[in-house]
Design a protein around this nucleic acid. Structure first.
Length: 321
DNA sequence: CAAATTTGACCCGC
DNA sequence: GCGGGTCAAATTTG
């Protein structure tokens, strides 16, 4: 369990490691910049905002360069630094499809007139659950040749209101029907606020419908070694309306050492199959798999709750299943 | 009643 | 022509 790969990745681990280092560095710089923007007066002698911006851009450039050297990397040239990670909007080819209604005269049912995305970023993961915290809407299901189980097609719920083109395909594994192979196609460009992933249950998620829960409410993940890892909800379950609370949090006078003094270390809660990268912020850690695959960012709020933030939402299930 | 799912039709790439 | 991805009307669900 917990297998993750970037489709087409080869053995170019050094390039990947370099990319990871650069991304980690860039992420760290972005966090500093965020802190700087929230508290412009408290520079503490660190880099200026301009310097941080330059550093972040350099990190992205270096990362892209490293990934581009991977023979089958899915990172493409159109992933310019300006686009990376900032939800630059719908990258619809020619933006010809902005809504559900696209009737074309002369075609039965008005169907057709769609293009396939041959060059979307794809990530494939194996998970015991289909739920990854994002709101997906099922739009199709197909029987696949030589496959016992059908393949289900999901698109982002925010496809139309925010133009998010992320889709995923979910199919049961042939050799283990309890496990799903999930292929993510395209990044989320919406500002979706993810909810906490459901805890793994004994029920078969395939048999139930897949309604994206609109109840973002608040599990209270507490660090407890006796529990499994209900850790992701602190950050990912935050509703849009609650976002200002984060800013408020940042404005408290709580010091970093105050935060960490009474909190458990990340080492005590990190699954063994994952590697953590220290950041300058002792309440935060960057994560990757043993094979170097980047997985995201784990941080801890003043209450000791853990939050996950990253480009790979399915990581939550990988980590916590 | 709005939103999600189902399902047959349609389209594209190979 | 076939297999797979997507559309959208019909149906179901909450």
């Amino acid at each position: 369990m917990g297998t993750f790969w970037v489709e087409g990745s080869s053995s170019t681990n050094s390039s990947k490691s370099r990319a990871i280092r650069e991304l980690v560095d860039g992420r760290e710089s972005a966090i500093r910049l965020k802190t700087l923007l929230c508290k412009p007066s408290g520079n503490n002698g660190s880099l200026s905002a301009d310097e941080l911006v330059v550093k972040i851009l350099r990190s992205f450039t270096e990362s892209l360069s490293a990934l581009s050297s991977c023979e089958h990397s899915e990172v493409r040239e159109d992933m310019s630094p300006q686009m990376v990670g900032f939800g630059s909007g719908c990258d619809d080819q020619g933006s010809e499809h902005s809504g559900e209604s696209r009737k074309r005269p002369g075609l039965k049912d008005g169907r057709g007139c769609y293009k396939r995305r041959k060059e979307s970023e794809t990530f494939t993961t194996i998970s015991s659950t289909k739920d990854d915290g994002h709101a997906w809407r099922k739009y199709g299901q197909k029987d696949i040749l030589n496959s016992t189980f059908p393949r289900c097609y999901f698109r982002c719920t925010h496809k139309h209101d925010q133009g998010c083109r992320a889709t995923k395909q979910v199919q049961k594994m042939e050799d283990d029907p309890k496990v799903y192979q999930i292929t993510y196609i395209g990044n989320h460009t919406c500002r979706e606020i993810t909810r906490a992933p459901q805890m793994i249950t004994d029920s078969d998620p395939w048999e139930s419908s897949y309604p994206p829960s609109r109840n973002n409410s608040d599990t209270k993940p507490l660090i407890n070694s006796q529990q499994s890892f209900p850790l992701c909800s602190a950050r990912n379950s935050i509703k849009k309306e609650e976002e200002p609370a984060l800013v408020k949090e940042d404005t408290t006078t709580t010091t970093t050492s105050d935060l960490t003094d009474n909190l458990p270390s990340f080492d005590s809660i990190l699954p063994p199959e994952l590697m953590g990268f220290e950041s300058s912020d002792p309440t935060a850690m960057y994560l990757s798999c043993a094979d170097g695959s980047p997985h995201g960012f784990l941080d801890m709020d003043p209450m000791g709750r853990l939050g996950f933030d990253g480009e790979f939402p399915f990581y939550e299930n990988v980590l916590f299943s």
